[in-house]
């Protein structure tokens, strides 16, 4: 039995689709790349490499599906490849995980903090947690999408997100305290309620 004949698009047509579907996500890719690379030039290179790879594989992309998740997955693959080349890939549970376990309490969100305070607090979150917090809370990916993008189990996504957000809240609470902004931590709420 002969399968359906698929007419492969020619290059100008592919380029047009690519411009419409993928290019609008270039700023989002750069943002994620900044969190991965911590350096503007390297982030630009990573976003660029991602787009080049994406265009080469664009004939495999199904129009109308989640293009941003598809591009981000390519970006992570490219990033991992670069890390492997640098032979610095950490294969075991790292210090970040251990630090997270020692977080003493969970605080509620301080009020009257500025954008700069929020960004400064985010900077304090260890890299592995920060990446996932950004993918979820800034880029809006679901747990399942993050697991696919990062090629890790969904349980790991959930636990890292939980820890990452907790650290972020605590950092914000600590930051706010320095400036005398009143906060009440969630642990205290629980204690007051006898839980």
């Amino acid at each position: 039995m002969v399968g359906p004949l698929i007419k492969r698009k020619d290059t100008p047509e592919l380029l047009k689709d690519f411009e419409e579907e993928a290019m609008p996500f270039a700023p989002d890719l750069f943002r994620v790349a900044m969190f991965l690379k911590r350096n503007r030039d390297l982030a630009e290179d990573l976003a660029q490499e991602t787009m080049m790879q994406a265009f080469k594989s664009f004939h495999r992309y199904k129009l109308g599906t989640n293009c941003k998740a598809w591009l981000t997955t390519i970006m992570y693959n490219t990033h991992y490849k670069q890390l492997k080349k640098q032979t610095r890939m950490q294969l075991v549970e790292d210090k970040d995980e251990l630090i997270a376990r020692t977080v003493p309490f969970e605080a509620s969100v301080p009020e009257r903090v500025t954008d700069e305070d929020v960004l400064a607090a985010l900077e304090k979150v260890p890299q592995h947690f920060k990446e996932i917090v950004v993918l979820s809370d800034v880029e809006g990916f679901s747990y399942k999408e993050i697991a696919a993008v990062m090629d890790i189990p969904i349980g790991t996504v959930m636990s890292r997100l939980h820890r990452g957000r907790k650290i972020l809240r605590n950092e914000l609470a600590l930051y706010a305290r320095q400036f005398g902004i009143g906060i009440e931590d969630e642990e205290r709420v629980l204690k007051a309620k006898g839980e």
Binding site: M34, A47, V109, D115, E116, L122, V134, V138, L168, R169
Partner: peptide, 21 residues
């Protein structure tokens, strides 16, 4: 409060020139 922090986080990152190409 947690909803607020997410909103603030998202808007702070997106508005920051550091994370804008």
């Amino acid at each position: 409060a947690r909803r607020e922090i997410r909103t603030r986080l998202r808007s702070a990152v997106i508005a920051s020139p550091l994370y804008r190409p």
